[in-house]
Design a protein around this nucleic acid. Structure first.
Length: 187
DNA sequence: TGGCCGATATGCT
DNA sequence: GCATATCGGCCAA
């Protein structure tokens, strides 16, 4: 199965966010299928606007790892995107596939639904290292396309107070591994 | 089962 | 000094 290169990430951020759904992401023996993402471009909620200094990588690259810390104790994982404009895709939830015992140990939870069902959770479960920052995605992770394109639902992004009208959250329809359910019907 | 709230540190004004 | 792309525990129902 083909791994994803720079050309995949060079496209429109909304397309990249949708096409990451269903992809298998692996790091250090732990793997999951991406079931939820969010797109950030140059909107009011984007770090391109709110953290212009540290998020400069959003405008200067595509296909690189962008990690940020939030609320003190949490870190979140993004892949930069779009060769033409600032953009990044936030990984919000994965379906656990392998390395379950290691991830349970790192997360300290019994319910497997809590392993990877949130942006901070998946970084902890996969033990994404700090030195992955600004590295090419495919040098840090193994990332494979799905055989079939999953059906997708959309909704407003989570945890933001600005640009809440943009439906730039994407998820695999019917997945039980989402960070939160999607508000309404399909998308 | 769902809502509320505190923890905790970083980036930017 | 303040807001924040979060998480998990606690409490009421």
């Amino acid at each position: 199965m083909a791994t994803l290169g720079p050309r995949f990430f060079a496209r429109n951020t909304l397309e990249v966010a949708r096409d990451l759904l269903g992809c298998r992401l692996e790091l250090g023996g732990c793997a999951g299928v991406i079931v939820e993402t969010e797109a950030y471009r140059d909107d009011a909620a984007s770090h391109w606007v709110t953290r212009p200094n540290t998020a400069r990588i959003m405008g200067e690259s595509h296909g690189l790892v962008y990690i940020y810390s939030i609320y003190g104790m949490h870190r979140c994982l993004n892949f930069t995107s779009d060769a033409e404009r600032p953009g990044a895709v936030l990984l919000r939830a994965l379906e656990p596939v392998s390395g379950l015992d290691l991830m349970r140990e790192r997360r300290g939870v019994k319910d497997d639904r809590a392993l990877l069902s949130g942006p901070g959770k998946l970084v902890q479960a996969l033990a994404v290292p700090d030195d992955a920052q600004a590295q090419p995605v495919t040098e840090v992770f193994r990332l494979e396309r799905p055989r079939r394109r999953p059906s997708i639902v959309t909704g407003p992004r989570i945890g933001i107070s600005k640009a809440t009208e943009l439906p730039w959250r994407f998820g695999i329809a019917g997945s039980r591994w989402l960070s939160r359910p999607f508000p309404k019907t399909t998308g």
